[in-house]
Design a protein around this nucleic acid. Structure first.
Lengths: 157, 157
DNA sequence: CCTCAATAGTTGAGCGCTGAAACATCACGA
DNA sequence: TCGTGATGTTTCAGCGCTCAACTATTGAGG
C-alpha cells in the first residue's frame, strides 16, 4: 500500500531533487575558489560572527548548525589551524570549550561575503521573480517547521 | 558595489539554505537505514534501471548524473562489490566499459523504493499544498534551466 | 604506416563527514 | 562524602567525494 507520487508531485520532485544537489554544489565551488573554504565552514564562521563576543560553546555551535559534536570538533580544529578561530577554556565548566572567531577569521568572512552573495544571486535569487522568491520563502518555512525540530523517523506519526 | 540581499530575498535564503541541507540529510538517513545505501548510489541504480537493457556506459552514467568519471569509477566499484552492478567490456571500443544493473540490484532498488517514496512524502510533498507543489515545480524548472547546462562561473556573463 | 592529440577509465592522496568508543567533568541522591 | 549516571568533547576508523596524475585505446593528418 504505497502512496506513489502523482504526476504533479513526480514532476516537482524530479526537478527539485537535482536542483538541491546542483545548487549546493555550485555555491560550494564558488566559495571554495573565492575564499578557500567549504560552504559548511563559512556557515560556522557566520554563526560565530553573529554571536555575542563572537563566541559560542562547542555544543551551542553544534546545536545551531544541526550537526554532531564530532563534526564541530573536527571543523573547529581545522578552522583553528587556519587561524580563523581559537579555542578557550569555558569558565565555570571545565568540560566545556569556547570557539571564538578571531580578527583574521572575521576578515576572511568579510572578504568572502560579497562573492558568496553574488553566487547566491547568480544561481538562485536573480533567476526568480519577486513573486517566486516569496513563494519559495513560504514553502521553505513550511518545510523548516517540520525539519528543524526533531522528527527522527520518516514514517511514524 | 555589492548587491546585498533585500529583506525578502534574505528571508527566503535564510530559510531555503537550511532546508536544502536538512532535507538532503533526512532523505539520505532514511534510505541508508532502510536500504543500506546512500541516496547518491540509489540515484545511480535508478538511472541504470531506466536505461535500455539496464545498461549504460560509464561516461553516460557520469554525464546523466552530472558527476566526474572518477566518482563513477569509485561508485560502480562499490556497487559491484555489493553485487548490484556488474561491469562488461564495451563491444567496439576497447577503452569503454558498460555498467549493468544486476537482478540483485533491481531487487534492492525495488525493495528500497517504497521507503524512499514515503520519505519524500513525509519530509516534502505531504507538507505542502497542491498549489505550493506546483509553485515549487515551476521554481525548480526555472533554476534547472540555469544550472543544468554548463554555467561554470558565478559572476561572468 | 606512424605520430600525436583527444577520449575513456582507473588510481591514489587528501578532505569533510559519520558513528561509536573513550575520556573527563559535573550534579545529584544515598 | 561517595558513587553514579548524565553531559561535553575528542579520537579513531571508515565512507563518499574531489582533484590530479596515470594508463590504455582511438582516430585524424602527415
Amino acid at each position: 500500500m504505497v502512496r506513489w507520487l502523482t504526476d504533479d508531485e513526480q514532476r516537482t520532485w524530479r526537478a527539485f531533487g537535482p536542483v538541491m544537489r546542483l545548487l549546493t554544489h555550485r555555491l560550494d565551488r564558488d566559495l571554495r575558489s573565492a575564499a578557500g573554504m567549504p560552504i559548511t565552514y563559512y556557515e560556522l564562521l557566520v554563526m560565530l560572527s553573529e554571536a555575542p563576543a563572537r563566541t559560542l560553546r562547542m555544543s551551542e555551535l553544534a546545536q545551531y548548525t544541526d550537526s554532531s559534536p564530532s563534526r564541530i570538533s573536527h571543523a573547529v580544529g581545522k578552522l583553528e589551524e587556519s587561524g580563523w578561530v581559537r579555542r578557550e577554556h569555558c569558565a565555570g565548566d571545565r568540560r566545556g570549550w569556547l570557539a571564538i572567531l578571531t580578527d583574521d577569521g572575521l576578515a576572511a568572512l568579510k572578504a568572502a561575503a560579497p562573492t558568496h552573495v553574488e553566487s547566491v544571486r547568480a544561481h538562485l535569487i536573480d533567476l526568480l521573480t519577486p513573486r517566486q522568491i516569496r513563494q519559495l520563502g513560504e514553502i521553505s518555512e513550511a518545510l523548516m517547521a517540520h525539519l528543524s525540530p526533531d522528527s527522527e523517523t520518516a514514517t511514524e506519526p
